[in-house]
């Protein structure tokens, strides 16, 4: 363990902890933009600059390991001016899109610009045009001018998903996030979920809603037994998006696969069954749950009485949760009384 003093607060942190982590331990917030806990820090946005006693230049808190006895200042007029300049420079090519941007209301850039009271006029470049190729996944729309090039998407794609199909393309001012030749995107949306601004947006559902308009309903993904946690964004009783905003939540820590993140539209489909159907006079008719379950129970009982419990077999689904699958095998064994139970994932 090492001792670090942050703005006069002494904290003890493990060796190897960054200055930012030490500050978090001390309960002191340092503004960040490119940093994200689940990714390796790169120190590229330069928002998190702090002063370290004995160092002639400001250092970035997110990627600099703290040292024993280190004395850190996280706030001064000079540091604030440096942070403001980062924001001013970001605004040089950032469009005034907030009113039409998906991210408005939960955008890190918007929040920081607001916090630091920065306006767009300070610096400027000569106008320029550019063509940027389409994004690597059809489910995601890219808005290159909104991008702050924090590289979170790049790191998430490589470090979390092990894919590495996007990178910074071109140089300097003309850089943008583009494809890595020869590496295919799996459309998992990891990049989308970590983008701090509205540079990557979900292009599945046309309906948009501000954060305060749609309700975010936490639920478990129904596609497989991993049990990923996600949020259904529901507007007027209709699912319009899936998001993951809690990166500390097990088991998936904000990550999803293509199905969980983008494959939910069946929920809104008109053909989807919403009530149980029971065949009456050769035709499937809507019924109540009591009626339907009662019928199934009766039939199962009849089979069991006539042919024995082993005449019944149960096949469960990978699209149920672990808990549901557990209950199902319990039901087959304890209630029906057979070991004939299996799971579609084995087929």
């Amino acid at each position: 363990m090492i001792n670090v003093t942050i703005d006069g607060v002494r904290v003890e942190v493990p060796k190897g902890a960054t200055i930012l982590e030490a500050a978090q331990e001390a309960g002191i917030r340092i503004p960040t933009l490119c940093y994200l806990k689940k990714l390796s820090p790169i120190g590229s946005c330069r928002m998190c600059v702090v002063e370290v006693e004995g160092c002639t230049k400001p250092v970035t808190a997110c990627d600099t390991p703290a040292g024993d006895g280190m004395v850190v200042t996280t706030d001064s007029e000079e540091l604030r001016e440096m942070r403001r300049d980062v924001l001013r420079l970001l605004l040089v090519r950032h469009p005034l899109d907030c009113p039409v941007c998906d991210k408005g209301g939960e955008c890190d850039l918007q929040d920081l610009v607001y916090e630091f009271g920065v306006t767009a006029e300070s610096y400027r470049t000569e106008p320029f045009e550019r063509d940027v190729p389409r994004y690597v996944s059809p489910f995601i729309r890219q808005w290159p001018d909104r991008c702050v090039l924090c590289g979170r998407c790049v790191r998430a794609c490589k470090e979390v998903k092990g894919v590495g199909c996007i990178q910074i393309v071109d140089n300097g001012f003309y850089s943008y996030i583009g494809p890595v030749p020869g590496v295919e995107c799996i459309s998992c949306g990891e990049c989308l979920s970590v983008c701090p601004v509205g540079a990557l947006t979900d292009s599945v559902h046309p309906t948009k809603a501000r954060i305060w308009q749609a309700e975010r309903v936490p639920t478990t993904c129904g596609y497989c037994g991993v049990g990923c946690q996600l949020e259904l964004n529901v507007l007027n009783g209709e699912v319009i998006r899936v998001t993951t905003t809690d990166f500390d939540r097990a088991p998936n820590f904000g990550s999803l696969c293509v199905k969980g993140r983008f494959g939910w539209e069946f929920v809104n489909h008109p053909d989807r069954l919403e009530k149980p159907l029971v065949r009456k006079d050769g035709e499937l008719k809507e019924a109540t749950w009591d009626e339907a379950l009662g019928l199934v129970a009766r039939k199962l009982q009849e089979i069991k009485d006539e042919h024995g419990a082993d005449a019944v077999g149960g096949l469960s689904s990978a699209r149920c949760t672990n808990e549901e699958n557990y209950l199902f095998q319990k039901f087959m064994r304890a209630v029906i009384g057979t070991n004939n139970v299996d799971h579609c994932a084995r087929l």
Partner: peptide, 9 residues
Amino acid sequence: CGQCVPCRV
């Protein structure tokens, strides 16, 4: 390289 703000912009 386009990574950091002070230099890129």
